[in-house]
């Protein structure tokens, strides 16, 4: 997989996953790395940034297996921005596909 494609989209994957349900860090890494090759250290800086930008709030919740986990929850602001970003992405991906599929 060409890693050039990864740039910019990981943040969008994180936003999209958290907008569906509250997630903890490792869960996000697992879900994304099932499909996209990422180095695992990249997720936390992104989570920290998105939290600082007030897209996410965090809370601690006890887990069955041990110490509490930190969950990331989307704010109203985060939801708005995610909607915009996803709409732009869908249009872009669609346009690229149209161009690729013309090549016959």
């Amino acid at each position: 997989m060409n890693t050039q494609f990864n740039k910019g989209v990981i943040e969008m994957c994180v936003l999209s996953l958290v907008s569906q349900k509250d997630c903890y860090g490792y869960e996000l890494v697992e879900k994304i790395s099932q499909r996209i090759e990422i180095s695992e250290g990249t997720i936390y800086p992104i989570l920290r940034r998105l939290t600082q930008e007030k897209y996410f709030e965090t809370y601690l919740q006890e887990s069955a297996e041990g110490p509490p986990r930190k969950y990331y929850k989307m704010t109203q602001l985060g939801r708005q921005e995610t909607e915009k970003l996803l709409a732009a992405w869908r249009k872009f991906a669609n346009d690229v596909n149209m161009i690729i599929d013309q090549r016959k």
Binding site: Y24, G25, Y26, V29, E40, Y44, L47, R48, G66, P67, R69, K70
Partner: peptide, 9 residues
């Protein structure tokens, strides 16, 4: 955060 990550992994 990093400690949690390593523990979960």
């Amino acid at each position: 955060d990093q400690e949690e990550f390593i523990r979960e992994a």
